[in-house]
Design a protein around this nucleic acid. Structure first.
Length: 292
DNA sequence: CAGTCGTGGTG
DNA sequence: TCACCAAGACT
């Protein structure tokens, strides 16, 4: 196994972006919120909304004290609005189970709503400095190329965690940097479309480069078309509710111009099932929560 | 395991 | 122009 850690650490020192959540004082809650927002949403779109979020809700308890509707509205156009609901639930769980303190233990983090293998370890490592493998889509691509000689990674797997764990130095601080550096390399250099191999600090040990950059195929799931999809219909309904000054709309007026009425109704049904929308007496609202 | 879930920038 | 892509998680 080639040593990736040493060149990655050296490269990261000089090339890492100055991102808000990397500031030493950012705090575990800020890290947690940033990780929720970064799930499938690009960094540049997250930064302004993250800062607004933390200005409004500087602690988990502050967020949990407001109704989920406020979280969904503040989420704005980040996409996948279930994440706003889940972040609100996680905040309440942190208040109720952990005295309002973001837990440090990976198992406790995994038990929170909306937190999976990536986010749990990202918080434990980047907020608390513990030694765990953190594997995101960037890291999987870097390892697929450098170690397996593939052009694109296989679908996510539990094996990814073990593979990354095997690359981490013994020291906690160094291990955290290697985790961050692998992600950063994938984001800046070892990119999905046009990798900048001339600027890569591990090009000399890259199996994909040694093999002549073969196209090994792409086993990733392809995204469904968005235009005309149920997701677009859901987005239109939720946008109308977010932007409603009265915080409610007549059900027969929401997305009334949507071309496919059956699709609109189906989208609304799933939004209600997801807890993103509440319906009563002919009106739709964002969720106000169980307690008054 | 495979399907589902937003939104906007970009090559 | 339009398909691809983006610090995933849940069912």
């Amino acid at each position: 196994m080639p040593d990736l850690a040493t060149p990655l650490i050296a490269w990261y020192r000089g090339a890492a972006r100055d991102l808000p959540w990397r500031r030493p004082v950012f705090g575990a809650w800020g890290i947690l919120v940033s990780e929720f927002m970064l799930q499938q949403t690009p960094v540049a779109r997250v930064i302004p909304l993250l800062e607004a979020w933390l200005d409004r809700w500087p602690t988990p308890a502050a967020l949990a004290a407001d109704p989920p509707a406020e979280a969904v509205r503040q989420w704005a156009n980040l996409g996948y609005p279930r994440r706003a609901l889940w972040l609100h639930r996680a905040a309440a769980e942190i208040r109720d189970r952990h005295d309002g303190v973001v837990p440090r233990d990976v198992e406790a983090l995994l038990a929170l709503t909306g937190i999976g293998d990536y986010t749990a370890r990202a918080v434990a490592v980047f907020a608390y400095g513990d030694r765990h493998p953190v594997v995101d889509t960037n890291t999987r691509r870097v390892l697929a190329r450098a170690l397996e000689g593939r052009s694109q990674p296989a679908p996510p797997s539990k094996r990814d965690l073990a593979a990354m764990a095997g690359l981490l130095p013994a020291d906690d601080v160094d291990a955290a940097i290697v985790n961050a550096a692998a992600m950063e390399l994938g984001a800046l250099v070892c990119t999905a479309r046009t990798p900048r191999c001339d600027a890569c600090p591990i090009a000399h040990i890259c199996a994909w480069r040694a093999a002549g950059y073969p196209d090994t195929g792409d086993a990733r799931r392809k995204q469904a078309r968005y235009e005309g999809s149920d997701r677009q219909a859901r987005g239109a309904i939720l946008r109308a509710l977010r932007e409603s000054a009265a915080h409610e709309l007549r059900q027969d007026a929401v997305a009334s111009d949507w071309p496919d009425a059956a699709q609109r109704d189906r989208a609304l049904f799933t939004l209600i099932a997801d807890g993103l929308v509440e319906a009563s007496d002919g009106f739709l609202r964002l969720p106000r929560g169980a307690s008054a």
